[in-house]
Amino acid sequence: MKILLTGASGLVGSAFAQAATRRGHQVTGLVGNHPGSVPGLAAQRTADLTDEAALTATVLELFPDAIVNCAAISEPAQCDADPARAQALNVALPATLARLANHLSARLVHLSSEQVFDGTSPAPYTVKSPVKPINLYARQKVESERLVHTAAPDFAITLRAPLLTGNSLTGKRSLHERLFADWSAGKTPKVYTDEFRQPCTASNLSDLMVELLERNDARGVFHWAGADTLSRYELARRIRAHFKLSDTAAPLETITRDGDPRAASKRQASLALDLKPLAGVVKTPIETFAAQLDQFIIPPAYRAWYFSA
C-alpha cells in the first residue's frame, strides 16, 4: 500500500512510519522544519501543510492508496496562543485531506483526541457519547471530525487518541521526556492528583492505525487507549520509580484542580475511554502502563544529567 503521511516527524508520525514499513507498506512522509531523516520513510518531503494548493498538488502527484494525518497543534496552550495557525492545521488540513481522499478513493486515518469530551462523566466515554469540548483545541478536533466524515464518509477513520507516551525523534515530546527536561533543568513538575488519563504509546497506536488501514471494513469514529486509567501524579511517580530516580533528584509537586480553578476550567478531570468495538476484535494489544514503561528510553539530551543524578 502507498501511504502519504503528514506530521511524519512527530511522536505518532515517526512511530507510524516504522510500523507501516514493518508491515511492508511504502510511506511518503511530509515534514515541516524537521532537520533530519525520519526512519521508516521510503521518501521524505518538506511541505507547508497550510498551503492548500501545494498540498493538493503533492497528493495528486503521489496518488496514494491511503492518507494518514498525524499533523496537528496538540497542546491547548499553543492553540490559544496562535488560534489561526491551529485552525489551519487542526481543522482546514484534515478537511482538505478528506476531500482529496474521497476524490482518490483513498483510505484516510485522521487522529482526534479524548479531549472532545468534558471529563465529567463517571463512566468511560463511548464512541456514541455526546461530545462537549471545553477548550479551543477540543473544539477544533470536534469540528475536524465532522468535516472529515462529511467529506469522505466511505473512506475515513477517526481515532480518538489518549495522552500518548513513548520515545520521540527529538527526545522532547512525550510525557517522560518532558519530565526529564524539567528535572534536568532543576525544575519541579507540577502534577495533578485529581486528573486521570488512560495513556498508550505512540507505537501501539500506530500498530492499530496500520491494522485498521489493512481492514477494508473499518470506517467511522473509534477510541483507543491503554489498559490503565491513572492520575497524572501516579503516571509521573511511576516514571520516576521506573528510572530509579530519587525524590531529591526528580521532585514532584502535587496540585489539585481546586487549587487552580481558572486553569481547571479548560482541563478535563477524567478522560477514560470505552474501547469497544475495537477491543477484543483487533489484533493490536491494549497496553498496560507497566508495558509502556519498559519501552521508554532515557532521552539522549538528558543522559549526562541522569547518570550524574
Score class of each variant (00 low, 15 high):
14 S>W: 02
238 R>H: 01
225 A>M: 07
128 K>L: 15
88 A>S: 11
228 D>C: 04
49 L>E: 03
294 D>C: 10
154 D>T: 11
99 R>C: 06
9 S>D: 03
255 I>M: 15
164 L>V: 14
260 D>H: 13
183 W>M: 05
58 T>G: 05
159 L>G: 13
83 P>E: 11
216 N>Q: 09
214 E>D: 10
150 T>N: 14
74 S>L: 07
228 D>Y: 04
282 V>Q: 01
51 D>M: 01
227 A>D: 08
297 I>R: 12
261 P>C: 00
214 E>V: 12
238 R>E: 02
183 W>E: 08
185 A>H: 02
204 N>G: 11
137 Y>T: 15
224 W>N: 13
270 S>L: 08
189 P>L: 00
241 A>M: 11
122 P>A: 13
183 W>G: 13
183 W>K: 09
69 N>F: 02
151 A>E: 01
196 F>V: 04
148 V>C: 05
30 L>V: 02
177 E>F: 09
105 S>H: 12
136 L>W: 01
283 K>F: 09
279 A>Q: 11
309 A>S: 15
19 A>F: 05
141 K>R: 12
191 V>W: 07
304 A>F: 15
68 V>T: 01
248 T>D: 15
287 E>Y: 00
72 A>F: 00
26 Q>P: 11
66 A>I: 14
2 K>G: 08
190 K>Y: 09
41 L>G: 00
43 A>Q: 12
162 P>V: 10
198 Q>M: 02
223 H>G: 09
42 A>E: 12
117 F>E: 03
111 L>P: 15
160 R>P: 13
191 V>P: 07
235 L>E: 09
126 T>N: 08
9 S>T: 04
29 G>R: 01
209 M>C: 10
203 S>F: 10
228 D>Q: 03
218 A>V: 07
253 E>V: 05
104 L>D: 00
210 V>A: 09
95 A>H: 06
280 G>Y: 15
171 G>T: 06
68 V>K: 00
204 N>L: 12
99 R>D: 12
188 T>V: 01
109 V>K: 06
6 T>L: 10
16 F>K: 06
69 N>M: 02
246 S>G: 05
248 T>N: 14
66 A>E: 10
293 L>E: 12
245 L>W: 09
43 A>T: 05
117 F>K: 04
31 V>Y: 02
120 T>L: 10
158 T>K: 06
298 I>C: 08
236 A>L: 12
295 Q>A: 14
13 G>L: 12
180 F>D: 02
259 G>P: 03
182 D>S: 11
141 K>W: 04
55 L>Q: 01
106 A>E: 03
287 E>H: 00
213 L>Q: 13
189 P>F: 00
303 R>P: 15
96 T>K: 13
269 A>I: 13
4 L>S: 01
212 L>D: 08
279 A>Y: 14
148 V>I: 04
169 L>W: 07
72 A>Y: 00
17 A>V: 03
308 S>M: 11
294 D>T: 07
219 R>M: 11
73 I>T: 00
9 S>C: 06
123 A>V: 13
145 E>Q: 03
112 S>E: 06
240 R>G: 07
226 G>A: 09
21 T>I: 08
128 K>V: 14
26 Q>Y: 02
67 I>L: 01
100 L>C: 07
46 T>H: 10
